[in-house]
C-alpha cells in the first residue's frame, strides 16, 4: 500500500513521500498503544495477577529496563524512557514492511533524525558532566595533536549509526521488490522466508543494535 501526498502551499508544490506518511502512521499507532496501556494500568485490578494486554506491556517494559540496567547500570537508569521510545518506534517501523507498507526507516531523513537525537543527547551529557571548559578539553585527549581526529570521530558516529539502519532496511526493501517483480504471481512461494529474514530478523536485530549503541555512547561520555 502506498499513500503519497501532493500539496500546494503558498504557491509551492510540496511532495510528501509514502515513507514520511508511514512515519506519522507509526506515531499515531504508538500513541494509541500508549493511551490504551495507560487506561489499562489505571483501571488494573491489583488483587488479581496481570493478564492479556497488561502482560504484554509488562514484558516489553521489563525487557527494555533489564537491558538498560545491564548496560548503563543503576545510577543511569533514568535514560530508560528514551531507550524504550527508540526500541518501540524502531521495532514498529522496521516490522511495518510485513503489512505491505514501505518501512519508514528506509528513508534516510527518518534514520538521520533518530541518529541526530542520540548525537545531541550524547553531546548534551558530555557538556553537563564535564562542564563548559571540560567539554572542549575532552576533545584534546590524550594528545592535543589528535584534536581534528577526535572531532571527525565524534561527527562520524551519527553518520555510521544512521547509515547502518538505513542500509540494512533499504537493502531488504530493494531485494524484495526485485523478487516480487521478477516472479510475479509466483512470488509468494519464496517471499515469506525473505520477509522472515529481512523484516523480522534484520529489523529486530537493527533495533537492538541501535538502542545498544546509543546506550554505549552515552555511558562512554558520562563515565
Amino acid at each position: 500500500m502506498k499513500i503519497e501526498i501532493y500539496m500546494k502551499l503558498f504557491g509551492k508544490e510540496i511532495f510528501v513521500p509514502d515513507t514520511i506518511v508511514n512515519t506519522f502512521i507509526v506515531g499515531i499507532l504508538l500513541t494509541i498503544f500508549a493511551i490504551a496501556a495507560n487506561i489499562k494500568f489505571k483501571n488494573a485490578d491489583k488483587t488479581k495477577g496481570p493478564e492479556g494486554f497488561q502482560n504484554f506491556v509488562e514484558v516489553v517494559v521489563e525487557l527494555v529496563s533489564g537491558l538498560t540496567r545491564m548496560i548503563m547500570g543503576e545510577e543511569m537508569f533514568y535514560f530508560m524512557p528514551y531507550i524504550g521510545t527508540l526500541v518501540l518506534y524502531l521495532l514498529v517501523a522496521n516490522l511495518f514492511g510485513l503489512l505491505g507498507f514501505t518501512p519508514p526507516t528506509s528513508d534516510y531523513s527518518v534514520t538521520f533524525t533518530l541518529a541526530l537525537m542520540t548525537f545531541s543527547l550524547v553531546e548534551f551529557y558530555r557538556a553537563k558532566t564535564k562542564g563548559f571548559v571540560g567539554f572542549f578539553k575532552s576533545f584534546t585527549e590524550p594528545l592535543p595533536l589528535l584534536t581534528p581526529l577526535n572531532v571527525i570521530d565524534e561527527f562520524a558516529n551519527p553518520i555510521s549509526l544512521s547509515f547502518r539502519l538505513f542500509g540494512n532496511v533499504l537493502s531488504g526493501v530493494i531485494i524484495m521488490s526485485l523478487v516480487y517483480n521478477a516472479l510475479g504471481y509466483f512470488a509468494p512461494i519464496v517471499t515469506p522466508f525473505m520477509h522472515a529474514y529481512f523484516d523480522v530478523f534484520s529489523g529486530v536485530l537493527q533495533t537492538f543494535i541501535f538502542a545498544m549503541l546509543t546506550m554505549i555512547f552515552i555511558t562512554n561520555v558520562v563515565d
Binding site: 547509515f163 538505513f166 542500509g167 537493527q206
Partner: peptide, 12 residues
C-alpha cells in the same frame, strides 16, 4: 553490526 558498517557504506 559494527563490522558491517564499511559494507553498508559501499551499499549506500
Amino acid at each position: 553490526a559494527v563490522a558491517e558498517t564499511t559494507g553498508i557504506y559501499g551499499l549506500v
